[in-house]
């Protein structure tokens, strides 16, 4: 009897997760309805308007800003995170140095977003200004650089695990044919671990897409589609954080709609990554 009650309790907890997810999706959809009814789903996504006077809103600049910053961040982070994963998963695998480096990288993942934002604003921005990249320093490049640093821990720690899983027999096979360590990494370890590495980068890009505070402090917050790396822009998360407090009516609904789109975007990205991971680990 007690056991049945206990099991029912466990099931109830699990049901709470289902309920919670349902409530999230339902809440976002219902609250976005006004905006979607007014502008149409395709119309909302493809419109660049953002005007409180005429009550006309569209998500295109923010979708563009989000995708561009995340993509640039991903590209910027690759040399660093791949190095870290080779450092921890291949060159110093199982040694104390790798443990220390791994812990430092993990701690980096713990640094609050707002602190990254401050650092980007006060330390990195003047560097970009001095380099003459843009007048104020704000923009895609600044936001993406900080984002890249922020996602290194996510992409590198998983990749390191996949690289470390390369069978010793294969590596020895390559060495016995006369390959150098770099050649072994390039032609054996990396190709064997490639799908896992790919998945970890997708997972990291999911992080980059949803990042809010650091990006909103650095991107310049202008409601336009960015034309170049030094251009300013805004992201989906950024516009919500900036305008949610003062919003009502159709504007609030439009922000909700952007929230829904962002949710779907990150969910899709995470799903793809998890799917690849599942295939790889089989």
């Amino acid at each position: 009897m007690k056991d049945r009650l206990f099991k029912a309790g466990l099931l109830a907890a699990a049901c709470m997760i289902v309920l919670l997810t349902a409530a999230i999706v339902y809440g976002l959809v219902v609250r976005s309805m006004d905006a979607f009814e007014r502008f149409g789903i395709a119309g909302f996504i493809s419109s660049s308007a953002w005007d409180s006077q005429t009550d006309d809103y569209g998500a295109l600049p923010f979708i563009a800003g989000t995708v561009v910053t995340a993509t640039v961040a991903l590209v910027l982070c690759i040399p660093f995170s791949l190095s870290v994963s080779l450092f921890n998963g291949e060159y110093f695998r199982g040694r104390k140095l790798a443990v220390v480096a791994g812990s430092i990288i993990d701690l980096l993942a713990g640094v609050p977003s707002i602190v990254f934002g401050l650092w980007g604003f006060y330390t990195l921005r003047p560097v970009l200004v001095a380099a003459g990249i843009s007048g104020q320093g704000f923009g895609i490049l600044l936001a993406s650089t900080v984002l890249a640093i922020m996602i290194v821990p996510y992409s590198s720690s998983l990749s390191a695990e996949f690289i470390a899983m390369t069978p010793a027999a294969l590596k020895e096979g390559a060495y016995s044919l006369g390959a150098t360590r770099m050649e072994t990494i390039r032609y054996v370890s990396l190709p064997v671990a490639s799908s896992g590495i790919f998945a970890s980068y997708i997972l990291a890009s999911g992080r980059a897409l949803g990042e809010t505070m650091a990006v909103t402090m650095l991107i310049g917050n202008t409601n336009n589609i960015p034309r170049s790396l030094s251009d300013t822009g805004n992201t989906m998360a950024g516009i919500i954080a900036n305008q949610f407090g003062e919003a009502g009516g159709l504007k609030l609904s439009s922000l909700m709609a952007i929230g829904l789109l962002l949710f779907l975007l990150t969910a899709a990205v995470n799903l793809v990554a998890k799917y690849i991971m599942k295939i790889v680990s089989r």
Binding site: T21, G27, G206, G210, T212, A237, F244, L271
Partner: peptide, 18 residues
């Protein structure tokens, strides 16, 4: 997994609603 990948601002927005 889905909840874990959810952007924090979206969490805020949904709690605002509910």
């Amino acid at each position: 997994d889905l909840l874990q990948g959810m952007p924090s601002i979206v969490v805020g927005v949904i709690v605002y609603v509910w």
